[in-house]
Amino acid sequence: MQRRSPFLIATLAFGFAFLYGPILLLILYSFNESRLVTVWGGFSTKWYAELFRDEQILDAALVSLRVGVFSATIATVLGTLSALMMVRFGRFRGRLLFTGMITAPLVMPEVITGLSLLLLFVALETAIGWPAGRGVDTITIAHTTFCMAYVTVVVRARLAGLDRSVEEAAMDLGARPLKAFLVITLPMLMPALVSGWLLGFTLSLDDLVIASFVAGPSSTTLPMVVFSSVRLGISPKINALATLLVILATVTILIAAWILWRQERERDRAVSQALAEDKGRHATGRRA
């Protein structure tokens, strides 16, 4: 801390305790022998075993994974195109409407999005016979729609920060626009695409409300199962599931952070080395 104000340190401590306390408790009680959440009955992993025997939860997890992978992927493609439009295309007809449609899902209450999409699917089915019934497809479409808004925000920020002249350099050296985009722009956008995809995947995996509206009777996602079992009361099995999800997210983020940190350190080292070599070159006299 530059200014070690006790007030600021206290706020941080309180804030993080508030954010992490409940999660840590959840993890702790997932290893509780006792069924009663508040009574410590000794260490046990039996809830994990029970979790993996629960077919309903496992099926739902598979549905969620499928929906998550598909919607995150489609959303990444559409979100990248949207970001490209907004940053690179200048004025086009209907830009204002598009800007509205792409930012609104970020804040739109989920009940509204869910209801409106369900009514759309019903109307479409009546009108053209598609989608026949509701299930994984309709959930995927619904999730793609709100995930693409998030992907757009992430990719747009990165795209705006890119040096335009790098693409121009590619074209100057003979690459046609599509090739310049595929060979130069896309690789430079890669970090944003990866984080956009992960964000979309997480949001999809997390969504209860929209999925509840647009899911059919045969397709139940993981949050829907969790929700109905939570409504019935606390279950240590859910604690075990929560622990697994938290650990998964944490490990993924830590690995990503570690890779970034290592790259940065390597770059710093290489640049200082290059500077030293440069100095040597000028010191030994110029050969030109």
Binding site: D163, S165, E168, A169, D172, L173, G174, A175, M188
Partner: peptide
């Protein structure tokens, strides 16, 4: 630009960050 027999050196250099020095020079 990609059909012109002229090349440009950019103020920001505009080097392709994901390619080696060699690959940058070979790009054109």
């Amino acid at each position: 630009p990609y059909d012109r027999p002229v090349n440009m050196m950019f103020q920001s250099y505009a080097l392709f960050p994901h390619m080696t020095v060699e690959a940058n020079v070979a790009f054109g």
